[in-house]
Amino acid sequence: MPDSDAIRERIWIIGASDGIGAALARAWAGPKVELILSARSKAPLTALAERLGPGHMVLPLDVSDRAQLEAAAEQITADGPLDRIVHLAALYDPGMVADLDPDRAAQIVAVNLTGSFHVAQVAPRLLRPGGQLALCGSVAGYIGLPLGQIYSASKAGVINLAESLRTEWAGQTDVRLISPGFVDTRLTRKNRFAMPALSTPEQAAKAIMAGLDGRRFEIHFPRRFTRALKLLRALPYWASLPLLKRLIT
């Protein structure tokens, strides 16, 4: 652990083993930043930490397991308060709702939505006053997209949770919502359809970092795509639902 006087920020990235989380870690890493890297798999976290250099903590956990999260919180607290928590961990399986295995559906909800709830509950005691909690929704949560399965529903729940927390914790914790469009990651490579405005993890990390340093509640990108979906969400159902049906017909 580096000397505390040399640390400008302590940042906990949950979901750091690959994709956007790993890109964020690479972009943030520096002599005055201490990163706590979490995900379910230890090996990729360890490899990432070795590439980033000394002074970073590897803390494997499953956010759907409250006991694991509480144990991690105790370890983090021992070294002082955090400046930011960025929660990106998620599960995703594309396809029709009727085709999804019920046990897999429960697992997706447990990680995406209940996991976000667990992180939100432990965050206040880990963050410094005015520290930042960023939860990751998705543009898939804006409206019930075809082929979104339970993933879209779970991300709609995360958006709702972040909105509630933003009001409940006003003046105490800086709550932010991250709403990515399509990003080229291990999860989105499962898709069997063309993904408009596809971003790289590095582009996503750049947008997130800029957004978290700004003042807006929601960080959504790429805007040429997210704005179109926001417009679709704003339409009355008689107009939006026929448009959505065209996506699968």
Rank of each mutant, 00 (worst) to 15 (best):
L24T: 08
A205N: 09
R66N: 09
Y237C: 00
A43E: 15
K190I: 06
R84M: 14
V122F: 11
G130V: 14
L61Y: 04
I76W: 10
G55F: 04
G137R: 00
V158Y: 02
W28Q: 11
P44E: 03
G80F: 03
Q132F: 12
A27G: 12
A23S: 14
D184V: 12
A228C: 10
T77Q: 13
D83F: 11
W12C: 12
G141S: 08
E168D: 15
P196W: 03
A194D: 12
P242R: 00
D99T: 12
G19N: 10
R186F: 05
A98G: 08
I85K: 03
K206C: 02
Q172Y: 15
A27Y: 02
L231R: 14
A140C: 15
M1N: 07
E168Q: 14
E50Y: 07
T46A: 14
T200P: 11
G30R: 08
M209K: 08
T46E: 13
L147R: 00
Q172S: 12
A106K: 14
I108H: 02
A156E: 03
L147P: 00
H87K: 05
Y151L: 01
L165T: 06
A205Y: 07
I85R: 05
V158H: 02
S240Q: 01
P236I: 04
C136I: 01
V63I: 15
A98M: 09
P2A: 10
L127E: 09
P242S: 05
K155H: 11
L187P: 05
